[in-house]
C-alpha cells in the first residue's frame, strides 16, 4: 500500500475516533442546576372540622375525606397539620388513631395521587419530593407529641425515593453517572437510606483494577470461567510464552 494512502487511512481513523469521543462527551449530562426549595404557605384555611361532621370513631377510617384533604389542605405546614390533628382528635378521642389516619393520607393516599409523576425518571420531581419529605424529620424533632406521625411520613417517602432510584438505575444504567442522580443517591446515603446500585461485570473489573485487588480479580474470573474459557486462556498463555521464547532465541542466541 502506498504511503500517502496509508497516511490518509490513519488520519481518517483518528478523526473518526475523535468525532465519536466528542459525540459521547456531548451526550454526558453535566446539567448541575438543582431545583430550589419551595416556600411553605402559612395559611391554614382548610376546615377539617366541618368535613368531619357526622363521622365518629367507628366510621372515620373508612369515611375520612382523604382525596379532598390532599386537594385542598395545606399539608406542607406543621401548624396546619397540628390543627388538623386536633380536629381529628375531637372525633377519634384517641391521638394515635388520629395520627394513623393522617399518616395514611400523607403516605398511601398521596402516593396514589402522584404515582404517575414518578413512573419515569424525572430527577427534579424526586428532588422536590425529597425536599418536602425532609421537613417531616425536623417536625418530628420539634413536635414530640406527634413525633411518630412525622417519622412515619418521612420514612415512607425516603424509602419510596430510594426504591425509585434503584428501579430507575436498573432500567437505565447510564443515569448512574448523571449529576442529579448522584446528588439524590448522596442525599439518600446522608439520610441513611443506602441504595445498592447494580454494578455491571465490566464496572466490577475496572473497580478491582483501580483498587489493585489482583487476587480477588483472578479468583473471581477463574471461578466463573467455563472449562472452554480456561483452555483458551491456557492456550493464549502458552502461545505468549512461546512467542517470548522465540524472540529471546532469535535475538540473543543466534
Amino acid at each position: 500500500m502506498p504511503n500517502s494512502t496509508r497516511n490518509k487511512i490513519i488520519v481518517s481513523l483518528t478523526a473518526l475516533i475523535i468525532v465519536v469521543l466528542f459525540f459521547f462527551l456531548s451526550k454526558a449530562n453535566n446539567n448541575n442546576y438543582l431545583p430550589e426549595q419551595r416556600n411553605t404557605e402559612s395559611n391554614c384555611t382548610y376546615n377539617l372540622y366541618a368535613k368531619l361532621t357526622g363521622l365518629n370513631n367507628q366510621n372515620i377510617v373508612a369515611q375520612f375525606p382523604y382525596n379532598d384533604y390532599l386537594e385542598h389542605s395545606n399539608f406542607n405546614n406543621i401548624e396546619c397539620l397540628k390543627k388538623d390533628l386536633t380536629d381529628l382528635d375531637s372525633v377519634t378521642k384517641d391521638a394515635m388513631t388520629s395520627q394513623q389516619i393522617l399518616a395514611t393520607t400523607l403516605t398511601d393516599s398521596l402516593q396514589k395521587r402522584v404515582a404517575n409523576v414518578y413512573k419515569i425518571y424525572q430527577p427534579d420531581s424526586l428532588i422536590y419530593l425529597m425536599q418536602w419529605a425532609e421537613r417531616f424529620q425536623y417536625y418530628a424533632e420539634i413536635d414530640t407529641k406527634n413525633k411518630i406521625l412525622f417519622k412515619v411520613v418521612y420514612d415512607y417517602w425516603m424509602n419510596f425515593i430510594s426504591d425509585k432510584l434503584t428501579l430507575f438505575s436498573k432500567e437505565t444504567p447510564s443515569i448512574k453517572y448523571a449529576f442529579k442522580f448522584k446528588f439524590l443517591v448522596a442525599k439518600c446515603s446522608e439520610r441513611k437510606y443506602n441504595i445498592g446500585l447494580k454494578v455491571t461485570s465490566t464496572e466490577k473489573v475496572i473497580d478491582n483494577l483501580v483498587r489493585s485487588k489482583w487476587g480477588h480479580l483472578f479468583d473471581a474470573s477463574w471461578n466463573q470461567a467455563s472449562l472452554l474459557q480456561k483452555i483458551l486462556l491456557s492456550l493464549l498463555i502458552v502461545t505468549f510464552l512461546y512467542g517470548i521464547y522465540c524472540i529471546i532465541l532469535k535475538h540473543f542466541f543466534k
Partner: peptide, 26 residues
C-alpha cells in the same frame, strides 16, 4: 453496597448495637 470496607454500607435495614446504619428495607 461497595467492596471497599472503608466506604461500604450495608444493604437493607440495619441497626448496629442500637444505632441506625440503614433505614431502607429491602
Amino acid at each position: 453496597d461497595l467492596c471497599d470496607a472503608s466506604i461500604a454500607k450495608p444493604m437493607g435495614l440495619c441497626i448496629d448495637d442500637g444505632n441506625i446504619v440503614n433505614n431502607k428495607i429491602e
